[in-house]
Write a protein that binds this DNA or RNA. Structure first.
Length: 927
RNA sequence: GCCCAGAUGGCGGAAUUGGUAGACGCGCUGGACUUAAAAUCCAGUGGCCAUUAUGGCUGUGCGGGUUCAAGUCCCGCUCUGGGUACCA
């Protein structure tokens, strides 16, 4: 039979399904290996060829690990809550569950067709109540724990209450907002409501008034990672800052651990760097500046306490509570005016003209605790309320933002650091400040002459001794805002009694999403859940109206896969102890500051409370690159319906128009198909070159609107899944972005046909021989085993595809049809092309599946060569080659080379100055 | 602005530790088979020059450097992609 990929692929996909070939079960006799893909959001558009890239890579690795005797957990599921289904529901009235279910069916069909080795029994959907029961459970656990800074871990609120009852809160060092001190007696005297309000401040999931990112168009608040440059990542709508009472998760408590543990992860440096920047740790000091003629103090954070002698003004964030207190009557109107102006400006506008300096003097003064000088206090929006204390000491000589501000308001600039080897200069002549940390201190009292780093240390010691301040580490990482005023998400398992939130009892989970009559806010402006009937407890206490955000369901999904049907726990101890953590995680970098931080945080929390045995969820992580689209263009002559071919376009005035890549082949347009593509082009005329219409092209993002989307189903229909899998890998290194160009796919398809033909005679009868292989044949096989093994281990799948091609080309040349060579070849090819190899395996007479065969190990003995063909260079330029024995000595090699007739020409009668002989590499002669 | 990647033929890319640059594939050119086309097979294919066979020069974004030897290491730039955005 000829290679009939359609029959073969359907047949084996059916068999795998019927025989549960990819079912994973705990097997303590085998080492485990957990390979995870970032599960997709099932959008209405279905998968395009870019989506499965990472899935194919992880599938190859999973199959490779299985062949090497590992018990592989390789699951797939759906991140099924989300905005698009809800937006669609708002427009059409169709319940998002129905849309989502339909989309998931389509996704699954597409995924199955590619031949992935997923254990579909473990499929999860975040919108399934049996699944989100555990999302809600984790939320309650977060609610019932606080973060003890002394032990650096989460501890039960119940224990905290006991501490409060016995000794108050004076010795409690918690991650929380500042709280006033109370004794045990005072605690006991507080009302239930007062106590709960205090506890809320300690909980890891807490409700508080915070500045949130409000997106009016989406009608919801968003987390920091969901906002980019003042717009929502989803939809691109404007986002403004607003103070609202919202649920937040105290991820900032884990900042230090999230940062430190990055070191032990096998992630790419760039991804770790993104997380490091997002966490943003900075070391410095907090210092108190007394206000002039007042008992009040303003507290500032600085990383450069050494520059305290260079402070010439202070700046407060416009929102700071201190503003009214420092503002004098004289400046009140101007300050109010400035605050009003700032509030009007959106985040976006502020960012857009970050270069414009603005601010206002308050009339107030602070006293520099180190110099006792009076320092004027300004307000300006370049100081952010959300970071540090919302107040800074400005050192214009050594901070570029302060420098700009000083120049704008004509404030004095003092130099306190001199670069090594330089003399002090007049700051009036400077173009910018000197922000570097190399140099010596001047004009700085007792730290004069010290290096910056010594000076920082000495200053901190001084201020701590004098009680003016203390050492302090600050993080940029904010707590994660966890409420969404939307319908299609997990309901919070929380009800309110007297305005205080209480968790739903765990045995009553899941708290299921109620039906509503419309997916819109209520007339009162409440979230959609405000429309639900009976949305309250049996006792009549109202449930929370917000739902959880997208990252809720994805923060612990990798744990649920370990034990997806467990009704009594998120994951059983047994399953967790066996599968432990994800050994290999493949997905896009776009989740670096969202999902990948949140799930590390959830995992650490679950680790703290003893539910999971590993404190990091994803041991090794690879980022696959994006597959870009390759768009095609036709060129319409302006004002006509004529289209001119690419190389003639400069002779006319033309408008380039996107043409659907699916009607273009090797940049040649199918003109008939083009006429039928769009009624507008029905009567199109073409100006051809060489009788063809040649299209232009460009690499762009793959998108419907650019008509460059290629659907995997179409590729599978035409070439088969094995070809698609191998071609996606052949395109280039996994981590790099590259354009999809269907044109190259023929080569990979031809390879599979050639592979098929090795096992068949000229009449396509299956025919393999039992003869002993020759040395050459074994060398080809073992060379390939070696190369492919090494390549898979370092995730270099594109080069292994090349190695397979070389191998099949060479075996074809030798007309080799020996089973002893071809069968092992089929095994090493099976992770890449599972269907064709499964068929071959069965044709070879094997009973079981090729997926549980043994991956062959290469044997060095077949690769031993007796000679090596040395490239001979003269002054570094390769001139000719010479075959020499493997174990030749340098001396003999030199003699042989210099005696070679071709060498004479290059030596030109001179005496070579030097001969370099690198065994098995090169010979270089220096003339 | 800052941080991180990357730049190699017409195209995707290979060269794993400083050691033959361009593997493999696409495309293109020529040929075989065919009434023809498709499929398949064979040969050629970085550029320039010379062609009589052997050839020669040049070439990995640009400019320097280290080295017997540099796509690979060092210094200085340019461009492209990604992250971040007043974080004190």
């Amino acid at each position: 039979m000829e290679y009939n990929f359609r029959n073969i692929e359907q047949k084996w996909q059916k068999t795998w399904d019927e025989k549960d070939t990819y079912k994973a079960e705990i097997d303590k006799d085998k080492p485990k290996y957990y390979v995870l893909d970032m599960f997709p959001y099932p959008s209405g558009a279905g998968l395009h060829v870019g989506h499965p890239l990472g899935y194919i890579a992880s599938d190859i690795y999973s199959r490779y690990k299985r062949l090497n005797g590992y018990n592989v957990l390789h699951p797939m599921g759906y991140d099924a809550f989300g905005l698009p289904a809800e937006q669609y529901a708002i427009q059409t009235g169709q319940h998002p569950a129905i849309t989502t279910d339909k989309n998931i069916k389509r996704y699954k069909e597409q995924l199955v067709k590619i031949g992935f080795s997923y254990d579909w029994d473990r499929e999860i959907r975040t919108c399934d109540p049996d699944y989100y029961k555990w999302t809600q459970w984790v939320f309650i656990e977060l609610f019932e724990h606080w973060f003890n800074k002394k032990t650096q871990k989460a501890e039960p609120i119940a224990e905290l209450i006991k501490t409060f009852e016995s000794e108050g809160n004076k010795d409690v060092d918690a991650a929380c907002d500042e709280t006033s001190l109370f004794t045990a007696d005072e605690w006991k005297k507080k009302s239930e409501k007062q106590q709960q309000e205090i506890l809320l401040n300690y909980r890891l999931a807490y409700l508080a008034d915070t500045m949130v990112n409000w997106c009016a168009e989406l009608g919801t608040v968003l987390a920091n990672d969901e906002v980019k440059e003042g717009f929502s990542v989803r939809g691109g709508y404007p986002v403004v800052q607003k103070k609202m009472k919202q649920w937040s998760l105290r991820i900032s408590a884990y900042a230090e651990r999230l940062l430190n543990n990055l070191e032990k992860l096998e992630w790419t440096d760039s991804l770790k760097e993104i997380q490091r920047n997002w966490i943003g740790r900075s070391e410095g000091a907090e210092m108190k500046f007394k206000l002039k003629d007042s008992d009040l103090e303003m507290e500032i954070f600085t990383t450069r306490p050494d520059t305290s002698w260079g402070v010439t003004f202070m700046v407060l964030a416009p929102e700071s509570e201190l503003v009214p207190q420092v503002t004098t009557d004289e400046y009140k109107d101007k300050v109010d005016e400035y605050i009003k102006e700032t509030k009007k400006r959106s985040e976006r506008e502020r960012l857009a003209d970050a270069k414009t300096v603005s601010g206002q003097f308050t009339g107030g003064y602070a006293i520099n605790p180190l110099t006792n000088q009076e320092i004027p206090i300004y307000i300006s929006d370049y100081v952010l309320m959300g970071y540090g204390t919302g107040a800074i000491m400005a050192v214009p000589g050594h901070d570029s933002r302060d420098f700009k501000f000083a120049r704008h308001f004509n404030l004095p600039i003092i130099q306190v650091v001199v670069k090594d080897g330089e003399e002090p200069t007049d700051p009036q002549t400077w173009d910018d400040s000197y922000d570097g940390k190399e140099g010596k201190m001047i004009h700085s009292g007792f730290i004069n002459g010290l290096d910056v780093n010594e000076a920082i240390e000495k200053t901190i010691q001084h201020i701590e001794k004098e009680g003016i301040g203390n050492r302090k580490v600050n993080f940029r990482l904010r707590d994660a805002i966890f409420s969404r005023q939307r319908y299609w998400g997990e309901p919070f398992p929380v009800y309110f009694k007297d305005g205080i939130p209480y968790p739903v009892k765990k045995e009553n989970l899941p708290l299921e999403l109620p039906e509503v009559d419309a997916y819109l806010p209520t007339d009162k402006g409440e979230p959609p859940l405000g429309r639900a009937k009976d949305w309250h407890t049996e006792e009549g206490y109202p449930y929370e109206l917000s739902t959880m955000p997208g990252f809720a369901g994805s923060s612990a999904y990798y744990l649920r896969y370990m034990d997806p049907h467990n009704n009594n726990a998120l994951v059983s101890k047994e399953a967790n102890e066996y599968w432990q953590d994800v050994d290999l995680y493949i997905g896009g970098t776009e989740h670096a500051t969202g999902h990948l931080i949140y799930s590390r945080f959830w995992n650490k929390f679950l680790f703290d409370i003893g539910w999971v045995c590993k404190d990091e969820p994803f041991k090794k992580l690879i980022n696959q690159g994006m597959i870009q689209g390759r768009s095609n263009f036709v060129y319409r002559v302006k004002g006509t319906n004529k289209f001119v071919s690419y190389n003639l376009r400069n002779e006319y005035e033309v408008t380039p128009i996107h043409a659907d890549v699916n009607i273009v082949n090797n940049d040649i347009l199918d003109t008939e198909a083009f006429k039928n593509w769009n009624p507008e082009y029905k009567d199109a005329e073409f100006i051809l070159e060489d009788n063809k219409y040649v299209c232009g092209y460009a690499v762009e993002k793959m998108s419907k609107s650019l008509y460059n989307v290629v659907n995997p189903d179409d590729i599978i229909e035409q070439y088969g899944a094995d070809t698609l899998r191998m071609y996606e890998m052949f395109l280039g290194p996994l981590e790099m972005s590259k354009p999809w160009d269907t044109n190259g796919i023929d080569g990979v398809h031809k390879f599979l046909r050639k592979f098929w033909r090795l096992f068949h005679d000229n009449d396509f009868n299956f025919s393999v021989s039992e003869d002993e292989p020759t040395e050459d044949e074994l060398k080809i096989l073992h060379k390939t085993i070696k190369k492919v093994t090494e390549d898979i281990e370092r995730f270099s799948f594109n080069t292994s595809v090349s190695a397979f091609m070389i191998c099949v080309n060479e075996l074809t040349d030798l007309k080799c049809n020996k089973k002893a060579v071809l069968e092992p070849l089929a095994i090493i090819l099976s992770p890449f092309a599972p269907h064709i190899t499964e068929e071959i395996w069965s044709l070879c007479g094997n009973i079981g599946s090729i997926t549980v065969a043994d991956f062959p190990t290469y044997e060095e003995k077949y690769l031993v060569e007796s000679s090596f063909e040395y490239p001979v260079s003269f002054n570094g330029k390769m001139r000719f080659k010479i075959k020499l024995p493997m174990d030749i000595s340098a001396k003999d090699a030199e003699k042989q080379v210099l005696g070679h007739e071709l060498a004479q020409k290059w030596i030109e009668g001179k005496t070579p100055r030097k001969v370099i002989f690198v065994p098995k590499k090169i010979i270089n002669i220096v003339i």
